[in-house]
Computed example of a mutant assay.
Amino acid sequence: MSDIASFPVPQVWDVMPDPSAIPAARRLVVEIARFWRVPLSNEALRDAELCTSELVANAMEHTRARCRVAVRWTGERLRVEVADSSARLTSRDRAQDLTTSGRGLILVEALSHSWGWHPLKTGKVVWFECAADQPVTGDSRRAVLVDATRAI
């Protein structure tokens, strides 16, 4: 069995433009990671949860339309992508010292191992990745990946 074939199937869903959908989206990301047995500590899962909240909230605030969330496990990193209908990336330098908003991408940059964005035909995808707390190699890597695919 090749390692690529043993990765869990990415999970993708639409999030409606309703503020109550933000907590549900972040909880679902954590539930998926736990279901897949992604080797992330509770602290790393909290970081992924917060980063998800920020990206989904940004998408809702700037488009007032639904967005699409995708979660993938690469074998080394948990990747969360949020696609929306705006081609414009919100500025991570926009926040003023006394404002209470505008710091979402600064938090994502600080809490994730990597992040970025790329344009789509109609919009963009903003993503972040959280690395596994410990490298998963050899037989233990194969066991984590095989168990995750059986559970789905």
Results as ranks from 00 to 15, higher is better:
Phe35Asn: 05
Val38Ser: 01
Val38Met: 05
Val38Thr: 14
Leu40Gly: 03
Ser41Tyr: 10
Ser41Trp: 15
Glu43Asp: 14
Glu43Gln: 05
Leu45Ala: 01
Leu45Lys: 01
Arg46Pro: 00
Arg46Ala: 07
Glu49Thr: 12
Glu49Lys: 02
Leu50Ile: 11
Leu50Val: 09
Leu50Asp: 03
Cys51Asp: 13
Thr52Phe: 03
Thr52Tyr: 08
Thr52Cys: 05
Ser53Tyr: 13
Ser53Thr: 11
Ser53Leu: 07
Val56Gln: 08
Val56Phe: 08
Ala57Thr: 15
Ala57Asn: 15
Asn58Thr: 01
Asn58Tyr: 00
Asn58Met: 01
Met60Ser: 09
Met60Ile: 11
His62Ile: 09
His62Asp: 08
His62Arg: 11
Thr63Tyr: 00
Thr63Ile: 00
Arg64Trp: 15
Ala65Thr: 13
Arg66Val: 02
Arg66Glu: 07
Arg68Gly: 09
Arg68Phe: 03
Ala70Val: 09
Val71His: 02
Val71Ile: 11
Arg72Val: 05
Trp73Leu: 06
Gly75Ala: 06
Gly75Met: 08
Arg77Gly: 01
Arg77Phe: 04
Leu78Val: 08
Arg79Cys: 10
Val80Glu: 07
Val80Tyr: 13
Glu81Ser: 00
Glu81Lys: 00
Glu81Pro: 00
Val82Gln: 03
Val82Phe: 07
Ala83Arg: 06
Ala83Trp: 01
Asp84Met: 06
Ser85Gln: 01
Ser86Ile: 13
Ser86Thr: 15
Ser86Leu: 05
Ser86Val: 10
Ala87Phe: 02
Arg88Gln: 09
Leu89Ser: 15
Leu89Gly: 06
Leu89Pro: 14
Ser91Trp: 05
Ser91Ala: 04
Arg92Lys: 10
Asp93Gly: 10
Asp93Ile: 00
Ala95Trp: 11
Gln96Gly: 12
Asp97Gly: 09
Thr99Ala: 08
Ser101Pro: 09
Gly102Pro: 13
Gly102Asp: 08
Gly102Leu: 00
Arg103Asn: 06
Arg103Ala: 10
Gly104Tyr: 05
Ile106Met: 14
Ile106His: 09
Leu107Ile: 13
Val108Cys: 05
Val108Pro: 10
Val108Phe: 04
Val108Thr: 08
Ala110Phe: 06
Ala110Thr: 13
His113Pro: 10
His113Met: 12
Ser114Glu: 15
Trp115Met: 12
His118Met: 09
Pro119Glu: 07
Leu120Tyr: 14
Leu120Val: 09
Lys121Tyr: 13
Thr122Gly: 15
Gly123Cys: 02
Gly123Pro: 02
Lys124Thr: 03
Val126Ile: 07
Val126Met: 10
Trp127Val: 04
Phe128Asn: 02
Cys130Phe: 08
Cys130Asp: 02
Ala131Lys: 15
Ala132Glu: 06
Ala132Met: 12
Asp133Cys: 03
Gln134Leu: 15
Gln134Trp: 07
Gln134Tyr: 04
Val136His: 14
Thr137Val: 08
Thr137Gln: 11
Gly138Ala: 02
Gly138Cys: 03
Gly138Thr: 06
Asp139Pro: 06
Ser140Asp: 10
Ser140Phe: 13
